[in-house]
Amino acid sequence: MGTLIRSQNDVWVRAEDASAIGALRRTAVALAGRRGFGEEDVGRVAVAVSEAASNLVKHAVEGIMLIRPHPELDTAVEVLAVDRGPGMGDVARALRDGYSTTGTLGIGLGGITRMASGYEVHSIPGRGTVLGMYFVAHDSPHPASLASGVTRPIGVESVCGDAFVIAETGDTMTAMLCDGLGHGGAAAQASQQAARIFAEHAETDPTPVALLERIHRGLNHTRGGAVAVARVDRAAGKASFAGLGNVSAWIVHQDGRQGMVSVPGIAGHQARTLRQYEYTVPPHGVVVLHSDGLSERWDITTYPGLVTRLPSVIAATLLRDAGTRRDDACVVALRPGV
């Protein structure tokens, strides 16, 4: 049995005033305790999260933070700190202890990253910064950092109608994203049903189109939705894809992106003949799936170095810049080459 990575009920917390710092620290400490962290490791998490949240409050534009169990490893904690500016022109310089800047995460960035078990930063002047970091207890394994995703519900909803699951087996990664029709509880019911079906059959169904067909049949008593299934063979550098409805799928590299083709319809209700397409994934390429809660008008060439970052940092950056508040949103990133 391989590894299953599932979407969570991601709760993004605004970090725009000092009261958020303590709340974020307490959330991180409680989660680390539930993950089995000892006192010293919990202390590392508390200090790093407090410092990152403080910098968002002091220096960020629209700073938000996500604290959650690491999607690839249930003994680890993941933290994403995201803002819309002012960004940093020289991240390496900002990582040096004692360096001070008015840019987001400039003060204390070196200390923050030193306390984390792993981290990556992507920053563009004028557009903002995304810091992704994870924490593991002393002598615990580290996550593979091959695949991740993030979700965000529409407006003030507490439940996201989009969901994803990623199955990893050997050199193969298979991802499913479902955008439940509409939003709220009924949309979430459809997407969670798709996730259950996928998780049960990801290892036994031979192809993405077979999985898609099974999900299509299994959503007939729900509101339905748009569904995409992508399977990446890391050793061969190949991707197989089958989609139904309005889920965007891309093979992304530093010089641009290639779209993958879905057929029109609504999973669970109406569909033309389902089809599967084969693609080549270039070295250092990334497979990205996202719901229509994100605009397709993002240009990877305007994000220098982003395709080399952690999948969670890629997903969070695209959610920040292409996401719309008028719909639930979900982004999945698979990084087959390491």
Rank of each mutant, 00 (worst) to 15 (best):
A48S: 06
N246V: 08
H59N: 13
P71Q: 10
D299R: 15
V209A: 10
A267W: 03
R214H: 02
A52N: 01
L4K: 10
V77H: 01
M133D: 04
L105T: 02
S191G: 09
S54R: 12
S248I: 08
H290V: 04
P283S: 13
R275T: 14
D97M: 13
A116Q: 10
R320I: 00
L306M: 03
R25N: 03
S117G: 09
S312A: 15
D90R: 15
G149V: 05
L318H: 07
A187P: 06
L95F: 01
D74R: 14
D205S: 14
Q270A: 09
Q192R: 15
V313R: 04
P125N: 05
A230T: 13
P304F: 09
A18P: 04
R25F: 03
V286C: 06
G245T: 02
L181N: 04
T104M: 01
P125C: 06
Q192A: 12
M65V: 07
S145P: 04
T104V: 00
G103A: 15
H269T: 07
P141I: 11
L73N: 15
D162P: 09
A242G: 03
G184W: 08
A239M: 12
S312W: 01
T317R: 07
G110T: 08
Y99R: 03
P282A: 08
T102K: 06
V121I: 15
D327N: 12
V121M: 01
D162S: 09
V313D: 00
S19A: 15
R272I: 07
S291P: 11
G98W: 13
S240R: 14
A199Q: 08
S295F: 11
G110E: 05
G108F: 00
F241P: 08
M115F: 05
H290F: 12
V42Y: 02
R309D: 03
T169A: 12
F164E: 04
P141T: 06
T169Q: 13
A94E: 09
D179V: 11
V57Y: 05
G323K: 11
G128N: 03
M88V: 03
G87F: 01
G149F: 02
G36R: 13
I197A: 00
L95N: 02
G126A: 10
I64R: 15
A94D: 03
V121P: 01
A163W: 02
L310V: 05
L211M: 15
E39C: 04
V261H: 10
F241D: 10
V150F: 07
A147C: 08
G85C: 01
V261S: 10
D327Y: 05
A315T: 08
K238N: 10
G85W: 02
S19M: 11
S248P: 04
W250N: 09
I64C: 05
G22K: 14
A23I: 14
L146N: 06
